[in-house]
Simulated scan of single mutants.
Amino acid sequence: MTTPGADERLREALGALAAGVRADPDAYRRASSGWRRRYRRRRLVLAILAAVVFAAADAVGLWALSQADPNTHVIFSDPVPRPAVPEQVDRIGQP
């Protein structure tokens, strides 16, 4: 258990220590400007990284498209079914 005198001495010692501390008036402004600078730098790096990834994906896509042979890569190769007689229609109304 603590004695009442020890509590009082501890309070006086901590008070004297706190009285000896001098706060820098510009400390918060300097710290805040550092935080904002790092935040802007992080956002700029992220924007540049996103642009580089986008440009690389575009470049790879364009390279892949330019390497394709237009004669062998057909999307719709099934023949289109046509009616035997062009005037004959087997449904009525909008398609």
Rank of each mutant, 00 (worst) to 15 (best):
M1K: 14
M1Y: 05
G5P: 01
A6W: 10
D7V: 05
E8L: 04
R11H: 07
R11W: 07
E12K: 11
L14R: 15
G15P: 03
G15D: 15
A16Y: 12
A18E: 15
A18N: 15
A18F: 11
V21I: 15
V21R: 15
V21M: 10
R22W: 01
R22V: 12
P25I: 01
A27P: 00
A27F: 03
R29E: 10
R30L: 06
A31S: 07
S32G: 01
S33D: 10
W35K: 15
W35F: 09
R38W: 10
Y39W: 13
R40A: 12
R42N: 13
R43Q: 14
V45Q: 14
L46N: 09
L46F: 01
A47K: 04
F54R: 00
A55V: 08
A55W: 04
A57C: 07
D58Q: 10
A59G: 10
A59S: 07
V60G: 03
A64V: 09
P70L: 07
N71E: 12
T72G: 08
H73T: 08
H73P: 01
V74G: 08
S77C: 03
D78K: 15
V80E: 12
P81Y: 06
P83I: 01
P86M: 05
Q88P: 01
V89K: 12
Q94R: 15
Q94T: 11
P95R: 13
